[in-house]
Nucleic acid binder design. Structure first.
Length: 143
DNA sequence: GTTCTAACA
DNA sequence: TGTTAGAA
């Protein structure tokens, strides 16, 4: 079984038993969900035992949460996949647009996000402000 | 000991 | 879906 502590590496591979224990979803269900193409496992070719990328943990957990809310498996799986894609789009956006993140209040985890300039002469800077209770985008104009 | 598939009270 | 069975 998976140890009590483990590093959250993106390339972490876990077995069906671990995924089941981690999510509370039975191995039987995991196999069925895969058969229905709701989730997928990686096959190492050597054994027939299923292996899962750690990202699959998030998806299985998302499906289970939606299932517990009363959605059907099909609906839960569909929503979970859409959530995953939305997060994926946000990641792309953050990586592409966020030039730098400045920490202004370590205690409350507040700061500002540098998002580049509006024009070539760099007179209008776009900054994302993350303040207490409110966050917004601001254009700072330099003379 | 774990996971596999297939089948079934 | 859970739980068996026998095999890997």
């Amino acid at each position: 079984m998976l140890g009590d502590k483990f590093s959250l590496k993106a390339d972490l591979i876990i077995g069906i038993g671990d995924l089941s224990n981690l999510t509370g979803v039975s191995a039987r269900q995991l196999r069925y969900w895969e058969e229905k193409k709701y989730i997928e496992s990686v096959t190492d070719g050597k054994s027939s035992a299923r292996k899962y990328k750690f990202e699959m943990f998030y998806k299985v957990r998302a499906i289970k949460l939606l299932l517990d809310e009363g959605l059907t498996l099909a609906k839960a799986a569909e929503q979970a996949e859409q959530q995953r894609q939305k997060v994926e789009i946000c990641k792309k956006f953050v990586n592409a647009v966020f030039t730098d993140v400045v920490i202004e209040d370590p205690e409350k985890v507040l700061g500002k996000i540098m998002m580049g300039y509006l024009d070539e002469d760099q007179k209008r800077k776009v900054v994302g402000i993350v303040a207490e209770g409110r966050s917004y985008i601001e254009v700072q104009t330099k003379k």
